[in-house]
Every structure is written in C-alpha cells, then in structure tokens.
Amino acid sequence: MKVELIELREDRIRFLLTGATAAFANGIRRACMSEVPTLAIDEIRLYDNTSVLFDEQISLRLGLIPLTAEDLDVYSSPEDCICEGAGCPGCRVDFILTAEGPKMVYSQDVVFTDPGVKVAFEGIPVVVLGEGEKLVVEGYATKRTGSAHSKWQSGTTCGYKNLPRIDIGDCQKCGKCVKVCPRDVLALDEGDRVRVVNLLACSLCKLCIDECDYQAITVTPVPDSFVLTIEGDGSIKAKDLVVKAAEEIRHRAEMIGEKMADLS
C-alpha cells in the first residue's frame, strides 16, 4: 500500500492511494461520513421566540451549526455514557443563546458552558431580529455519528475515483480531443502531438475517445489506485478525520476477530 499526498488544506485533503481494494477506499470514504463522531446541538428549550421564524426552523438551523471541541474524547455518546442515556455532563454540553433585536443572530452567539467547545465557523446567520423581537434558547449538544443524523456528519463531501491511465497511440495531430476535454487534461506539445498534462483532473468521462476519429486514445481506470477527496465540515481537521475513520474500521474488524475467537 502506498499513499501520496496531493492537496492538503485545513478542511480538505486529497491523496492517492495505491495497492488497496475498492472496498477499502470505499470503507474510508463511508467511515469519514458516517462513523466518525462529532458534536451537534441535539435538544433545545425555547423560552422566548418572537422572531419571524417558527420554533422548528430555529431548532433546525441551530442543529446544523458545526461545533468543534478542544478535546472531543472527554465526551461520550449518550448510548455509551455511564448515565445510560439519562443525560449528564459526560455526554451533554449545555449552551445558551439570548438575543434582542434589532440584530442579526449569528452562530457565535451560541455560548457553551464548556469553554473548549465552540462553533466551527463564526458568522453563520441564524435569524434576523427586528425592533423589539427576542430569542432566548437553552439546550445541549451531544456527540454522535453521521449515521444517526447528518448534523453529526464530520465528513461532508467525501469521494474517490480510480486513477485514470491515458494512452495515446497513433495521433493524427487534429487536436479535437484537446478541445472537447472539459477538464483540460490534454494539451498539444511543440510537435502538435497530444500529451497528458493534468492526469489527476481526468474524470474518466471518455469524451476524448468518442471525439477521436482515429481511435488513438484509450482511457482505462487503474484498478488498485484511487484518488480520495475528503472534505470536512470544520469540526475536525480533514487530515485527522481520515485517521479516525481508519481507526474506526480497524476497531470494528478487531471486534469481529475477538468475537470469532470467543466462539471457536
């Protein structure tokens, strides 16, 4: 197995994975989206809401605000908590939100009792309050995974594709394929021959194959090479998200192994 880094940003990572099965690449992708736990506002109590939005809309908007924690491990999910889901400081982070108009309520107005827990992005608009309108909300956030609800999804845009392999045979230098390619993968060199200039951008759409009158181009997926793109919601760094996803798969495989050993 080989990993090559292509792009790294705080919220996004792109890497080339070689020597793995499609099932493994897909496992990482799926685990990033639905098996890595994060915090999200779970239940709220509205003391006052005279804004133009219904209570339900306010609660939906609050639930979808991404949250970060300095140390997420101090919290356990309600199902695994010692309180057995009844609710305790070990599985809940309380917050309050009070605002009076005229004002725009933003995500940073949500204040948590734990100073380590914050909204991932400031400036996410929640509601506009007019003169004399009030919003008083109290509630708590819990830690769960994306499989329970998309608000706990720490990986938002995650995908993979096979690495393409483009072979150019008997090129007649017409340049039609260069024009038709939507991602500028191909270019003409000094001798007007077609050359691959940006292989990773290729989406394997095969328009160049259809366009070529001389059947000079072949595009095939490399079966054991994958380009993975993992983008997070800001609650966790993208590079850590992939590690957590792999650890999650490892943990589960280990559990199967243990159960099998117990039974035999």
């Binding site: 080989k2 990993v3 793995a20 798969i249 490892r250 495989a253 280990e254 199967i256 192994g257």
Partner: peptide
C-alpha cells in the same frame, strides 16, 4: 478480520508518513 486490521495499520502508517 485480522487481514483488515493489518490493512488499516498499513494504511495509517503510510498515511502518516505521507
């Protein structure tokens, strides 16, 4: 199951190195 565990370990090692 142990082959999957080994795959994850190998991946994590390669990933951290990259």
């Amino acid at each position: 199951a142990s082959r999957i565990t080994a795959q994850c370990d190998e991946f994590l090692q390669c990933y951290n190195a990259a």
